[in-house]
Amino acid sequence: MQYALLIYENEDLYRTDAGRSMDEIITAHRALAGELAQQGILLGGQGLKTADTATTVRKSDGQHALHDGPYAEAREQLGGFYLIEVSDLDAALAIAKRIPLAGDGAVEVRPMIEEG
């Protein structure tokens, strides 16, 4: 099964010193990604710039409208994702629990539509 692990965090934790430092988190991500790649689990993934850099294109009644900002205004924003291939949901959940977070946050585990 292939899963996307979508990381939602309060970005303020990275702007202030409230949480773990940005460098520390990036190092932890690299270590985890390296380990997953070595095990042949990692399909891909990336960190995202903060949500205030986002532009949303919305289609409504056939018209496109742009707005400055992320799809949903929420306290926690999508900050990055891992794409993995593992045997089942339990394995995916176990990896989700290991994803480094600056403080409180959430990781949504979403099965991917697979070809074939």
């Binding site: 899963y3 045997s87 089942d88 949901l89 339990d90 995916a92």
Partner: peptide, 10 residues
């Protein structure tokens, strides 16, 4: 079915 819940005893 869709989320891949395991059918094994954990």
């Amino acid at each position: 079915a869709q989320a891949g819940v395991s059918f094994e005893v954990p």
